[in-house]
């Protein structure tokens, strides 16, 4: 939760219907100012095309089917990479949080690898995989792995030991203890990891697609640059922003569903 969310306004200031719209005021205002600046010639269209031109470019690409195809390719890469990297990170987080032996065996290695910026591996990855799908998936998975691993591990290690003792006294088996106490206790921290990972997921994908790809949003932007189609370049950047927002909202919905017990998610 951001700081602004946690500082609640007095009840009289909150109009429930407007509440959901408030967050869109600033983005809409920026677009309006941008449109005016472009139309009046304050910003030359060679530098930044008017929003209306961007929408038009988007419409054309939509009609040709190119836009949907590229968005789909990027979305597919992001999700598969996220599932692979996140899954492995979650598994290592669980193993190292629950077993001392596993932590001793692998944690040091993982912490060393973590300190290598994963985008620095791009030249190596291109040599290994070419500009194939696997190159992008590998990079996304690698980037997503660490935030999920670290936060899962942290979440499990910080579960209240008094609750674990309570579970043992009341005769919970290991699997029951995990299901009823350890996993729910680690969940808030795991969600923090997921939201970090989503940010890294898009970042990695953009970089990977602009450098080495033959399809996808990043590739579309790079192609447009070659032909000086600045409206398409801006369009792809905006779509990235929207997809990022969408992923974040999805994780928030999940958070609300699974953490409804948490005081921070209860209706004030």
């Amino acid at each position: 939760m951001s700081l602004i969310d946690s500082v609640s306004l007095p009840r009289s200031f909150r109009l429930p219907r407007v509440d959901g719209l408030i967050q869109w005021i600033v983005p809409l205002a920026i677009i309006a100012i941008w449109q005016v600046a472009s139309v009046t010639g304050f910003v030359p269209t060679r530098v930044l095309p008017a929003p209306s031109d961007v929408v038009l470019a988007g419409w054309k690409l939509l009609l040709s089917g190119e836009l949907v195809r590229n968005i789909w390719v990027s979305f597919w890469r992001a999700s598969i990479g996220f599932l692979i990297g996140g899954g492995i990170g979650f598994a290592f987080g669980l193993a190292n949080g629950l077993s001392q032996l596993s932590a001793k065996l692998t944690d040091t290695t993982l912490q060393m690898v973590r300190n290598v910026p994963h985008l620095a591996l791009i030249p190596l990855v291109i040599l290994w995989f070419g500009i194939d799908e696997s190159a992008k998936l590998f990079l996304v998975a690698l980037g997503v792995f660490f935030p999920i691993y670290l936060n899962t591990l942290h979440g499990i290690r910080t579960v209240d030991p008094q609750l674990i003792e309570m579970g043992r006294i009341y005769g919970m088996t290991d699997s029951e203890l995990f299901r009823r106490v350890i996993f729910p206790g680690a969940l808030p921290s795991i969600f923090v990891g997921i939201r970090f990972a989503l940010g890294i997921m898009w970042l990695t994908l953009i970089v990977a697609e602009t450098i080495a790809a033959s399809s996808g949003l990043g590739y579309m932007a790079m192609q447009a640059r070659e032909f000086m189609l600045i409206d398409v370049v801006v369009l792809s950047i905006l779509i990235y922003a929207l997809l990022g927002k969408l992923a974040d909202s999805a994780s928030r919905v999940l958070e609300r569903l699974t953490l409804s017990w948490h005081p921070a998610f209860q209706k004030r």
Binding site: M166, Y170, V181, G185
Partner: peptide
């Protein structure tokens, strides 16, 4: 094990379980 129970200074309730589910934990096996 169900014959001997302890109550601590802290309630040690599971925050993610409803009140009734928390009581059910006490049933042991």
């Amino acid at each position: 094990p169900e014959d001997i129970r302890v109550m601590f200074q802290e309630p040690r309730l599971l925050p993610w379980a409803r009140v009734l589910a928390n009581v059910e934990v006490g049933l042991g096996r």
